[in-house]
Design a binder for these strands. Structure first.
Lengths: 253, 253
DNA sequence: GAGTGGTCTAGACCACCTC
DNA sequence: AGGTGGTCTAGACCACTCG
């Protein structure tokens, strides 16, 4: 008896805060503009800083904010459409493909990669480290694995500088039968985070690709994209030109 | 003078905790097994509960743990490979396509959807709500938008039960020229969260699809996949059979 | 050195599930 | 009723950037 509880659900403070902030972002702020600092914002909304941060965290996850230690919190631009997996199947590194090589080593593949490649765990693979930059900022790092068995014609003596181009050139002589991709959510390892200019643990989209030739997996890659700034596009058409972000009011009924 | 600072970087406690927990998960726990509760775990590691939770949060994001309020934290099975965008272009709802319809209404499209469809903001669209279940648990919800102009032959009088099938049947009479997809990270809206058996704000992979026919966007959909349990697969081959999770030791040099 | 976001603590209460 | 994870507080200190 007693307390009439017409307010069935009380949504969490940080959730409500998020909607308030989104409204403010859409109406009162420009892209790139810097927000008041967290302590001030928390005081203004009458909540603890940790609560405010929970809201900011989600907004950053959704690509609406960008936070930088020592600098501040800024309004993020709409996510970039990043083409992944063009309709025309092509080998990595062929043509102009938006990646540039950072380094290359020959080593044994880690167990999960060996499983993808279908090679023995102790087999040698060339590992090419590449990076992808769009609009002046790094959006992805990639490790491309090419089993030594896939490029038998490779000349044995290679300088570090000529290693990656030689492997790619050799790879391109094969006929590509098809490719395969998988996308999943992950968190940036320390090394990836540094390349992507984020903190370790930042949310990333991990794209695993397999390249088939001669009935085998001739190469495989694991690419790590910044989840906050990227929208991965697939398929026939070019970059999709939607306004931005996840549809908000896609309610209909 | 001065504190010799050989330990250049001190990694955060929660980060170190994460690696310790991963090791424990791999060696001492079975899939589905329930972990000690957060208060006990925090005490065992000598950290505050909030710090422990920061580690658990990332592990859940990476699909290694599953937490349920009132129940506990369990070890998650490897992510499911969920096929998205088969090589053969087909209309949604054609053949057996793993989705089942929940409801259907005719209404005006929200602004971002109208932009994708290239229709006027006040144009009527049929909105079909569908759900995808795999291995007994819901993995995605979808809103499929079909402009009324795309299905001119639709009979005007429809019962709610026959509405969705009629729209799909009419849609399938068109010739599909191609399709388009984009994947980005989002957080679950309250309604989606309920369907996906998650809390609001849970991380999701948002897949936006466009279906082309007659030189126009004849239909579009926004599908929301659970990011913790799903690995989205694209391309020619079927489900990729990797061991699981993001490659851990893909370090080579 | 001043200001920012990032980490961490030690509590408290709430919503939910199960017994 | 008792136990679980989810939310929230009010502090503290640290790492980083910049003028």
């Amino acid at each position: 008896m007693g307390t009439t509880q017409l307010e069935a659900v009380q949504e969490p403070k940080y959730w409500h805060l998020k909607t308030v902030l989104i409204d403010a972002l859409d109406s009162e702020f420009e892209v790139g503009e810097i927000l008041p600092n967290e302590r001030d914002l928390a005081a203004r909304f009458g909540v603890a800083r940790a609560t405010l941060r929970q809201a900011l965290e989600q907004l950053e996850l959704e690509g609406r904010l960008q936070r930088r230690r020592g600098v501040g919190t800024t309004v993020a631009p709409p996510r970039m459409g990043v083409a992944v997996g063009p309709s025309a199947n092509v080998w990595p590194g062929a043509g102009r493909d938006a990646w540039h090589t950072i380094g290359c080593v020959e080593a044994v593949a880690p167990a999960p990669i060996a499983a993808v490649l279908g090679t023995a765990a102790d087999e040698a693979v060339h590992t090419i480290h590449r990076e992808r930059v769009m609009q002046g900022q790094p959006v992805a790092t990639e490790l491309l694995y090419v089993p030594a068995a896939s490029v038998p014609g490779l000349s044995p003596m290679l300088t570090p500088a000529s290693h990656a181009p030689a492997v790619l050139r050799e790879l391109h002589t094969l006929e590509l039968d098809g490719e395969d991709r998988a996308v999943e959510l992950g968190s940036a390892r320390a090394e990836d985070a540094k390349h992507l200019d984020r903190l370790p643990g930042a949310p990333v989209l991990v794209v695993t690709s397999r390249y088939f030739a001669g009935g085998r997996v001739a190469a495989a890659s694991v690419a790590t994209y910044r989840a906050d700034t990227c929208r991965l596009t697939f398929g026939d058409s070019g970059t999709v030109e939607v306004t931005h972000h996840q549809a908000e009011g896609r309610r209909a009924s």
